[in-house]
Design a protein around this nucleic acid. Structure first.
Lengths: 284, 284
DNA sequence: GCCCTCTTTCCGTCCAGCGGAAGGGATTTT
DNA sequence: AAAATCCCTTCCGCTGGACGGAAAGAGGGC
């Protein structure tokens, strides 16, 4: 129960900012509400430190406290999160088009952006009467295991691709693409055809179609995807409508290639973001 | 330009946690991307401190940095925000019903929860072909100025209500309810009728209808509202469908009063939250 | 060219944050 | 009912990390 060995092995001297962040970091989909001592144990911080920081975080609104004494992420964080340019902003612009897409196809629609080696879904519209997919707004999945992720990966820098391919690629089903060579081949196909079509990458009963969305300098900034039950009528039939959606959103973001001269006075939202680099999760 | 007076007046010694939070706090809808010196100025922190903290925040993913050197809120925060029980969780459960509601009414739909003296919209579905309302996911508005806010206020504790009524109530239009007595009367009406119907509270060209959503101990935990253009056919006609939506969501949250015996094996999501207190923004 | 603003790095000082410890409350076990 | 566990909260003395000044580097505009 005591952790003498650990303490001596890891230098884990933290900066005070890191302590604060490590507290926020213990919350995840499986740990939505935690007690003081839970948090203290999971962060490795002492009780008194944790206690003090929790109070500061709560006072600010980053955490809320329930009647049973447990802490959860507070609404102030939700509010903050919508200010992320690749999140709330992009979502805001894309949402109407995504709604149209959902009406037209009745599938699960995802809007994904890259972070580290993962995709984050900044929107996830679920069809009620189809296969339940394990996706949610704010969800994070490895790029190599989702349709949208593979599209993003395909359009990332060569260097970044190799970095991802060299990392440990988790296998979710026996059809998950994990072989670097197979992936390289697949990504080349995606670049050539402009669309990624995959089956049973994450779960056995689903297949996905995804295409890139481009922003200002025609850089790929996001990807839209549809997930439908395995065995649905040809996924290829979804490509045209997906492509149209992608083009609409890209135009709204100001992508040069998507702007038609005869487009008329169609309002083009000026996207605040200049460019967000694909960054490796390692940081530093 | 210099702030000598301020510095001497306020003791503003900050804790290190507060410094971190104050950096996050400078981002808002008007300041989505800020430079190091912007942030330094707005927080009052020195350049070197700001610089160090920004790097730590960026490394963790709380902030991202653009090609022009400016910082924005990062996706990790968006991801975290969806873990807020009153946010992501509630939204997840309510979303299908809200979609139905939108189909049935073609209005702007809001799902609001209380925070401090404000409502936060944890979902905002906009109708494309109607009056543009200044609302967005994650948006924050004073309770007294929105339909959903008034519903939440009406069902808050007496003490909390008086606290809000005693505060400075901003007037957005000349029809915004700001008189404490008029508000007390209105809130009593809302409790009695179970619905709030208001006009031109926030903007002149809109009216709103809102009803409460109840959770576990039959406490009011959220409110759904529809906003339609001023002059639409009787807003009263929206009440039944809104009430039905509210009831469905309340049942899904486990509200005793919404559970019908003959309801069948309808799946009732167990809501993680026990209870979240209405808290005054002052903290401490 | 010069000037101005912004970013990055370095380093010595000092005090704020840290963690141990003790106390209080609630619940369960013997 | 006493004892044994938990968990939360508060207090306080010590120390090492955070802080801010300063200076150098990097653009950009005039």
């Amino acid at each position: 129960m005591t952790v003498l060995a650990d303490k001596s092995l890891e230098p884990h001297r933290l900066t005070s900012a890191q302590r604060v962040l490590s507290i926020l970091g213990v919350f995840d989909t499986e740990n939505l509400a935690l007690s003081l001592s839970d948090i203290s144990r999971r962060t490795g911080l002492t009780l008194s430190t944790t206690h003090r920081l929790l109070n500061e975080l709560r006072r600010w609104g980053a955490l809320s406290r329930h009647s049973d004494g447990k802490y959860s992420i507070g609404l102030r964080i939700l509010e903050l999160g919508t200010l992320a340019p690749q999140g709330g902003q992009l979502r805001e612009i894309a949402l109407p088009y995504l709604h149209d897409l959902q009406h037209a196809t009745r599938g699960n629609i995802h809007l994904g952006v890259p972070e580290g080696h993962d995709v984050i879904y900044v929107e996830s519209l679920r069809a009620r009467d189809t296969v339940p997919v394990p996706s949610r707004l704010g969800g994070r999945w490895p790029m190599h295991a989702t349709g949208t992720g593979l599209v993003l990966l395909a359009h990332a820098s060569q260097e970044f691709q190799e970095e991802v391919l060299a990392s440990k690629l988790r296998r979710y089903t026996d059809r998950t693409l994990t072989d670097p060579d197979a992936l390289r081949h697949f990504l080349a196909e995606v670049r050539k055809s402009g669309v990624a079509i995959v089956q049973s990458q994450l779960t056995y009963d689903a297949m996905a179609v995804a295409v890139p969305i481009r922003g200002p300098r025609d850089r790929v900034v996001a990807a839209v995807g549809i997930t439908v039950p395995l065995g649905s009528p040809s996924p290829h039939s979804l490509v045209p409508v997906l492509a149209a959606t992608s083009r609409s959103i890209s135009r709204a973001l100001g992508a040069p290639s998507a702007v038609t001269d005869a487009g008329g006075p169609r309002q083009t939202a000026h996207w605040q973001v200049r460019e967000v680099k694909y960054s490796n999760s390692a940081g530093r």
